[in-house]
Amino acid sequence: MARRNRIVYGAAVLASALVLTACGGDGDSGEDDEIAGVQTPTEEAPEPEPSEDPEETEEEPADGRPEIDLGPDFENVYEGEPTGDPVVDAALRDLQGFEDAYAEAIVHHESDRPAVRYYATGDALNQVIQVLDGIFAEGISNTGTARYFNMAVTPIDDVSATFSYCRDFGQVNTTDFETGEVLEEGDPTAPASQYSGRLELNDEGVWQTVGYDRVADSSECQ
Rank of each mutant, 00 (worst) to 15 (best):
Asn5Glu: 06
Ile7Arg: 08
Ile7Phe: 08
Ala11Glu: 15
Ser16Leu: 09
Leu18Phe: 06
Thr21Ile: 14
Thr21His: 10
Gly24Asn: 09
Glu31Val: 15
Asp32Val: 15
Glu34Ala: 11
Ile35Asn: 12
Ile35Asp: 07
Val38Asn: 03
Thr40Gln: 13
Glu43His: 10
Glu49Phe: 01
Asp53Lys: 06
Asp53Ala: 11
Glu59Leu: 15
Pro66Gln: 12
Glu75Cys: 13
Val77Ile: 12
Pro86Glu: 14
Pro86Phe: 00
Leu92Thr: 06
Arg93Met: 08
Leu95Thr: 04
Leu95Ser: 05
Gln96His: 11
Tyr102Pro: 06
Glu104Ser: 14
Glu104Ile: 09
Glu104Asn: 13
Glu104Arg: 15
His109Phe: 03
Ala115Asn: 11
Ala120Glu: 10
Leu125Ile: 14
Asp133Ala: 14
Asp133Pro: 03
Gly134His: 01
Thr145Lys: 15
Phe149Gly: 03
Ala152His: 12
Ala152Glu: 13
Thr154Lys: 05
Pro155Leu: 12
Asp158Lys: 02
Val159Ser: 07
Ala161His: 04
Gly170Met: 03
Asp176Pro: 06
Phe177Cys: 03
Gly180Glu: 04
Gly180Ser: 06
Glu184Arg: 12
Pro188Trp: 00
Ser193Val: 08
Gln194Val: 00
Tyr195Ser: 03
Leu201Glu: 11
Leu201Trp: 03
Glu204Tyr: 08
Val206Thr: 11
Gln208Met: 09
Gly211Cys: 03
Asp213Val: 07
Asp217Trp: 01
Ser218Asn: 00
Cys221His: 00
